[in-house]
């Protein structure tokens, strides 16, 4: 399942919902992305996440379906927020559940690596020193590339 939303999410609630979906799951893995404080001196900073409504949901669904093809998952969940966020705020939650830990852990890493390079979100950072669009990083592409087949 995927959700794109402005509001925060409750990690415990989401994990509980996943674990109640199936009695045959033996492992639940999760990843939570959090806004880092970009102002080095501790001054105020914030981030605004822009996205492409429609394509975002489409890409997240595709990535989720790809994970379900590659690993025997009992359940999966991606929640990604947009809008204005402060340091410490949660941005993204990925939860995967499977009978065994390897599938759950690998699928979780795959989902976050792929969504970072494929889902149409952009971060705009504002700090006391100025504001700027966050640049894409080569090591995110490398992290995603390790899941490419062939």
């Amino acid at each position: 399942m995927i959700r794109v939303q402005e509001e925060d999410f409750d990690i415990a609630h989401e994990m509980e919902a996943i674990s109640s979906q199936s009695t045959s799951l033996g492992a639940i893995a999760s990843f939570v992305g959090v806004v880092r404080d970009m102002a080095g001196d501790g001054g105020p900073s914030s981030m605004t996440l822009e996205h492409y409504p429609g394509m975002t949901e489409r890409m997240l669904r595709e990535i989720d379906e790809e994970a379900c093809r590659r690993w025997p998952l009992e359940a999966s969940l991606i929640i990604h927020r947009y809008g204005r966020l402060e340091p410490g705020d949660r941005i993204v939650l990925v939860v995967t559940a499977s009978a065994h830990r390897h599938a759950a852990l690998e699928a979780c890493a795959f989902l976050i690596d792929w969504l970072k390079t494929k889902a149409p979100f952009w971060k705009f950072e504002e700090t006391p020193d100025g504001s700027h669009w966050v640049e894409a990083r080569a090591h995110d592409d490398e992290a995603a590339a390790r899941w490419e087949k062939e």
Partner: peptide, 8 residues
């Protein structure tokens, strides 16, 4: 048209 994505 957009720059490389930076979500996650």
């Amino acid at each position: 048209l957009f720059p490389p994505v930076t979500g996650g």
